[in-house]
Amino acid sequence: MDIFLQQIINGLTLGSVYAVVALGYTMVYGIIQLINFAHGELVMIGAMVAFSVIGALAGTQLPPVLIVLAGILVAVPVCMAVGYTMERIAYRPLRGAPRLAPLITAIGISIILQHVALLVWSRNPLAFPQIIPLVSFNVGGAIITGVQIAIILTSLLMMVGLTLMVYRTKLGIAMRATSQNPQVAGLMGIDIDRIIAFTFIVGAGLAAVAGVMVGTYYGIAHYSMGSLLGMKAFSAAVLGGIGNLAGAMLGGILLGVVEALGAGYIGDLTNNVFGSNYQDVFAFLMLIAVLVFRPSGLLGERVGDRA
């Protein structure tokens, strides 16, 4: 087996999930300069809701693809509603407040959402029912599964869709205008409250799909899965240059690949002093190394550079 190619495939799979989640962080940051620490919990809620639906439908004779799709179709609006609600009741009233206030609020919301999930779904993880037949292909000595292909393609589709929306539609241009100068955006007749709410909703929708994907990949979902995933996706956004869409995508994929390569080679590199369970350390070391040399991230511009 070709370890290198295999780890690249695994890394691309996870990396594209990170990228989709990182987009949510970076969009919200770009528009209101808030790091929405509760974004990882949206991923978790997406996975939990979808798994509940999928679990309920698993006994039926529906085709597996339809069952997963149904899970996504329920998870997306639920997450959008949660994302909208957090903006509306927690962040909007703090819009003019010093930056630490919404930041602390975000941490609070993240904790609250985890506990709500704990109440709803209990401490026990939800398992993904064995409904998807294992399909895999051999490519150049490595194995890629059907689920991996689906994850990579879905992520790619969402990234392309989001980019087109942001760069080609009037709404997308209004989002970018608002992120550059909200006051002048208001003078154009743009209702910036609506644009900001819309940004949260889009980010939450992406998070929901990411939750389903990562849950399906690992075959498991639990109430605290959003923390580390969110942390990594946030790091990916910073790595790429927070506020920059292309940066979030690049950062996410890079982080996934480096993490996977770390898992594959860390034992060899360190004479088995460290095992593959040190992959996160490896990934974050790279993050730190990049930020030392490029504090604003790979594609980032000066932070706070506003018209």
Binding site: A174, N181, V184, M188, A307
Partner: peptide, 15 residues
């Protein structure tokens, strides 16, 4: 107060 990172055409579209 032009949107510096938007193109001229996009600025006008926002108008």
């Amino acid at each position: 107060g032009v949107f510096g990172q938007l193109t001229v055409a996009e600025n006008l579209a926002m108008g």
